[in-house]
Design a protein around this nucleic acid. Structure first.
Length: 530
RNA sequence: GGCGCUAUCGUCUAGGGGACUAGGACAGGUGGUUCUCAGCCAUCAGACCCGGGUUCGAAUCCCGGUAGCGCUGCCA
C-alpha cells in the first residue's frame, strides 16, 4: 500500500513536471559533432528543430558535441556554423552566441560530467569497469556466437568501490558503466512514431565514461539536454536504439526525460544512405553550385513533411506558420536532385535580374566569360543574359556552360547533320542573300533582321523552316537554341563589349559561315561578292 | 544473427474505417505555342509490398511474412 501510494506520488509529480514543461518555453537543440562538413541529412535535422522552435516561439540551441577528440576539429565547427547560417538557421544560444546554459561545447563541460559521474558512482548506480577493449572484443564474439546477442556480461559489476579505487590508484585504467536493470521493459512515446518499446534484458550496462575520462555520447547528451532544459529532442532515426539507454541514465540521475521525436533518414537514389557518390551532399557544395539557400531550405523541409495546402514552393517564414511536427513522415526519404533543382528554379524566378546577375557573376568570372572589373555596360549585358538564360539553368553554376553557346562560333566544328542542313537549296540562297544585305547595315539589330528576312522571303520564295533554320545555323552553328529575337541583341551588344573572350557579331558570323561554305563548295563564288 | 523502425505512382507525399473511380508535386509520354531547343500551357500514363484476420465495409485497425533501413563501439 505504501509503495503504491509512493508510486502515485511520483506519477503525480512527473505529470506536474510534464505539464510545467509543456507550459514552459519550448527548447530544442541541434547537437552536431564537428567531424566534417554539414551533410544535408544533418541540415534537415537542424532545420526541423529550427522550424519547430520558431513556430513555438521557443529557443533553438546549438551545442557542439566534440567529446571524440580524435575526430573533432575546430575548423569543422566554424564551417558548420557558416553553413547553418547560410541556410538561414540561426541559434539563440550556442558557443559564440552565449546563453544562460553554457558552455555549449562539450569539451568545456568536462567538470560537469565528472560531477554527475561521481553522483552515479556514489549512489552505486554506476561502477568502474576494468575490461580492456580486447577482452570485450573476444567476449562479444563469444556471446554473439552462443546466443546471438552481444551484451556486456557484467563482469566488473560486482567489484567493490574500495577495490576499484585501489586498482585505479595502482595505475589501472577504468571506464565507468551504468548499472542497468537487465530485465523488464521500457517504453517511451515518440512524437512522430507513437510508443516505442524495448526489452531491457537486451540492454547491457553501457559505458558512460571512457577510460580516458571523457564522457561517452549516451551520458553527455543526457547531462547536457537536462541541464540545458531541452524540452524536445528532435533527431535522426539512427538514435532510436540509443534512447532507452539514455532514459536509463535519466532515471539513474532522477531526471525527467524530454519529449523525443525521431526523424527518418535521407537516402540516395539507390536506397542506400546518401553519400558523395550520389552527388553533392554537403550544404556548402550546394552553395558553391549556386543553389539558393531558401530553395535548399524549402526542399529539405519537403523531404518528410508536406504542407497542408497544395502549394509546395514556400519561404522559410511561410513554413514556420504551416509546420507541424506530428505531420512529419516516418519513412525514409530519397534525395531527389531533380526536384531540388525545380524548387530552386521557382525560387530563382522571384529574384530581380540584378540579383540574378550578382549571383551568376562569380561563376561567369571564373569561367573567364566576364572581366574582374565590371562596367555598368557589362552589368547591363549580364542582366540581359540572365533574362534569356534563366529558364535554361538549374543553378547558377550552370550559366557559363549555357552562355558559352554565345561565344563559341566555328563552322568547321558543326556536327555532320547540321552541315548537311546547310547544303539544301534554300539554305545556300538564303544565307548568301543575307550576307549581301547585312553588309550594308551599320548597327544590325533584330528589327533589321525581320526586314531582311521578309525581303529574302520575297526574293527566294523560301519561308518558314526553310528560311529561318539556315539563318539560325549560320548565326549560331547549331540547329537548336535561343529564339533569334533574343540571340541577336545579346550577341550584337556583347560584341561591342570588352570581354576576356571576344564575341563575334552577326555580320562576322555570316561572313565566316559564307567563307566556310565556299570552301566546301556549297555556294557559288560570285553570289557572295558584294 | 539479435533488437528496433519503416512500407501509397520511378521519386517526394495527401489520405488515418464508407466522401477513393486513391489527390497533388517532380520526373516521363503526347499535343499546342506556326525556325529549333528550353520554358510555358494543355493532356495522358503511372501506386495502396504479400498473406491472413477484425468489420456490413480495410490503403486505413490487428497478426504473420517479406523487403529496405537503423542500432548492435571506450563513434555521435
Amino acid at each position: 500500500m505504501e509503495t503504491c501510494f509512493c508510486l502515485i506520488g511520483i506519477w503525480v509529480f512527473r505529470q506536474n513536471v510534464l505539464i510545467l514543461s509543456s507550459m514552459k518555453n519550448i527548447r530544442v537543440r541541434f547537437a552536431p559533432s564537428p567531424t566534417g562538413f554539414l551533410h544535408v541529412g544533418n541540415a534537415r535535422t537542424a532545420l526541423f528543430n529550427w522550424l519547430f522552435a520558431r513556430q513555438q516561439k521557443g529557443t533553438f540551441v546549438l551545442r557542439i558535441e566534440d567529446t571524440d577528440i580524435e575526430r573533432s576539429a575546430l575548423e569543422y565547427e566554424e564551417k558548420l556554423k557558416e553553413d547553418l547560417l547560410w541556410l538561414g538557421l540561426d541559434w539563440d544560444e550556442g558557443p559564440d552566441a552565449g546563453g544562460a546554459f553554457g558552455p555549449y561545447r562539450q569539451s568545456l563541460r568536462l567538470d560537469i560530467y565528472k560531477d554527475y559521474t561521481h553522483k552515479l558512482l556514489d549512489s552505486g548506480k554506476a561502477y568502474r569497469c576494468f575490461c580492456t577493449t580486447e577482452d570485450l572484443e573476444t567476449e562479444r564474439k563469444e556471446a554473439q556466437a552462443k546466443s546471438g546477442v552481444a551484451i556486456y556480461s557484467g563482469k566488473c559489476a560486482n567489484i567493490s568501490a574500495t577495490e576499484a579505487l585501489q586498482r585505479i590508484q595502482d595505475g589501472e585504467k577504468a571506464s565507468v558503466r551504468l548499472r542497468t536493470p537487465g530485465r523488464g521493459a521500457l517504453a517511451f512515446p515518440d512524437l512522430v512514431r507513437g510508443e516505442l518499446k524495448f526489452d531491457l534484458s537486451l540492454i547491457g550496462d553501457p559505458i558512460i565514461v571512457r577510460s580516458t575520462g571523457h564522457p561517452a555520447y549516451n551520458f553527455a547528451v543526457v547531462v547536457d539536454d537536462s541541464l540545458m532544459e531541452i524540452t524536445h529532442v528532435i533527431r535522426g532515426e539512427d538514435h532510436i536504439s540509443n534512447t532507452p539507454r539514455q532514459i536509463l541514465v535519466y532515471q539513474a540521475l532522477s531526471l525527467v526525460p524530454p519529449h523525443f521525436a525521431h526523424l527518418s533518414m535521407v537516402m540516395g537514389r539507390d536506397g542506400t544512405r546518401l553519400s558523395k557518390r550520389h552527388g553533392a551532399t554537403a550544404v556548402d557544395q550546394f552553395q558553391k553550385d549556386g543553389v539558393l539557400s531558401p530553395a535548399l531550405f524549402n526542399y529539405l523541409a519537403l523531404l518528410g513533411w508536406a504542407p497542408p495546402e497544395d502549394q509546395e514552393v514556400l519561404s522559410p517564414e511561410e513554413m514556420i506558420g504551416l509546420f507541424d511536427l506530428k505531420k512529419v513522415s516516418r519513412s525514409a526519404a530519397i534525395f531527389d536532385y531533380d526536384k531540388l533543382y525545380w524548387i530552386n528554379r521557382q525560387h530563382t524566378k522571384t529574384l530581380s535580374v540584378r540579383q540574378m546577375a550578382e549571383m551568376a557573376f562569380p561563376h561567369m568570372k571564373s569561367a573567364e566569360l566576364l572581366p574582374d572589373i565590371m562596367t555598368e555596360a557589362h552589368w547591363d549585358w549580364l542582366e540581359k543574359v540572365m533574362e534569356v538564360f534563366i529558364e535554361r539553368v538549374d543553378r547558377f553554376a550552370d550559366f557559363p556552360l549555357q552562355v558559352d553557346s554565345l561565344f563559341r562560333y566555328s563552322p568547321v566544328e558543326m556536327d555532320e547533320e547540321t552541315k548537311k542542313e546547310m547544303e539544301g537549296d534554300c539554305a545556300s540562297r538564303v544565307v548568301s542573300l543575307f550576307g549581301q544585305k547585312i553588309a550594308n547595315i551599320e548597327h544590325f539589330d533584330y528589327a533589321q533582321f525581320v526586314t531582311i528576312t521578309q525581303e529574302i522571303k520575297q526574293d527566294t520564295g523560301c519561308k518558314g523552316k526553310d528560311l529561318y533554320h539556315p539563318l539560325r545555323i549560320a548565326l549560331t552553328t547549331r540547329s537548336s537554341g535561343l529564339d533569334l529575337d533574343k540571340f541577336i541583341p545579346l550577341v550584337e551588344e556583347g560584341a561591342r563589349l570588352d570581354l576576356p573572350r571576344s564575341l563575334k557579331n552577326c555580320c562576322q558570323r555570316i561572313y565566316e559561315m559564307l567563307g566556310y561554305l565556299q570552301q566546301r563548295g556549297s555556294i557559288q563564288n560570285e553570289e557572295t561578292e558584294s
